[in-house]
């Protein structure tokens, strides 16, 4: 049976684009481009932009890879291309 590989690849790409957008927004957006306005806000002793650059972004990165793992597992099974 010929598998729907085009459909699978499209699903994969759209997941990648979503996750990479979050990646770019947190690292380059919140931590670099908008760091100055965010630094005006404070949570405890942390200016928020500074916190994202030195803490927050890293936590988000970890979450992104695990989300990717679980979503891909589901997509692989839906299209029956898992190992």
């Amino acid at each position: 049976m010929k598998k729907d590989l085009t459909g699978y690849w499209k699903k994969n790409l759209s997941l990648l684009i979503t996750l990479l957008s979050v990646w770019a927004f947190v690292s380059f957006g919140l931590s670099i481009l908008f760091v100055e306005p965010l630094n005006a806000i404070r949570i405890a002793g942390f200016p928020v932009g500074f916190w994202f650059a030195q803490q927050g972004a890293i936590y988000v990165f970890v979450i992104l890879i695990f989300v990717y793992y679980f979503r891909m597992k589901k997509i692989d099974e839906d299209f029956d291309v898992q190992e």
């Binding site: 990648l16 990646w23 650059a53 990165f61 890879i65």
Partner: peptide, 26 residues
């Protein structure tokens, strides 16, 4: 380096962790 650079030291923190997202996804 972060201690001397302050905020600018984030380049190492972001760079050396964020790359794993690219690695894992791409």
């Amino acid at each position: 380096l972060i201690s001397f650079m302050g905020y600018a030291g984030s380049i190492y923190l972001l760079g050396w962790t964020g790359g794993y997202v690219l690695l894992a996804l791409l």
